[in-house]
């Protein structure tokens, strides 16, 4: 029990102290505060590197377990092949330009990622076809704004009217921006209260679910 309690209390205390220190150092330009900030940031990067090990280990373990159970075998085998081959190439020949690792990166990984990214264009088309319906007056206004924006962001907008880009920019700079600012303020306040709850220890989900 004492161990469990310490297990919760210690991270909570560390979180509180570092939360407070990082908050305070923001307002200081004293060399001590600057050095402290720099040191904490260095450690932050080091800790992050260790967290990757957790990901690598569980990815490998999960896939091997699933393959042995026969679930999604082809996909998992391809995943594991990439998982093993890329670090091997990096270890043997390094990761600078013109190495096998970079060849794989440029000719396998990058095109595959671009392909998935490109799906977005197709999904925008299908979502627009299905979703943009003038069901009500606000929906019709939204639809009209979207069409204006689409026209203005292509170089054919100018053919219809010289003023089209100006109208689109106005929509972007005023009604759209006002709505986004309101949402951003709400998000900012939500972030602030959540962060404070974490720092003072009443929000403990990040410790694994103890409310």
């Amino acid at each position: 029990m004492v161990g469990v309690l310490m297990g919760r209390r210690l991270p909570l205390a560390v979180c509180f102290v570092f939360g407070l220190v990082m908050f305070l150092q923001y307002f200081s330009e004293h060399p001590v505060a600057i050095n402290l900030n720099q040191t904490i940031l260095d450690y932050w990067q080091i800790v992050f590197a260790f967290t990757l090990i957790v990901g690598i280990f569980t990815y490998f373990k999960n896939n091997v377990t699933q393959i042995s159970r026969g679930s999604d075998r082809p996909f998992r085998l391809v995943g594991l092949a990439g998982f093993v081959s890329m670090p091997l190439l990096a270890l043997i020949w390094g990761i600078k330009a013109d190495t096998p690792f970079m060849w794989m990166f440029e000719n396998v990984q990058a095109p595959m990622q671009s392909t998935v990214f490109a799906l977005l264009a197709f999904f925008v088309a299908s979502a627009s076809f299905r979703g943009f319906r003038a069901r009500s007056l606000p929906a019709a206004v939204l639809l009209l704004s979207a069409l204006l924006m689409l026209l203005s962001r292509s170089n054919i907008g100018g053919f219809f009217s010289e003023g089209l880009p100006e109208i689109a920019n106005w929509i972007r700079d005023y009604p759209s921006m006002a709505a986004r600012r309101a949402i951003l303020i709400g998000i900012g306040l939500g972030s602030l209260t959540t962060s404070l709850r974490v720092i003072i220890g009443i929000e403990r989900t990040w410790l694994g679910g103890d409310k």
Partner: peptide, 23 residues
Amino acid sequence: GMLAQSSAHLYVILLVVLGNIVY
């Protein structure tokens, strides 16, 4: 690239109009 993007924009506009006609 802008040329390709403009054509895609026109195509989406066409789809939106078509979707509304169907609706």
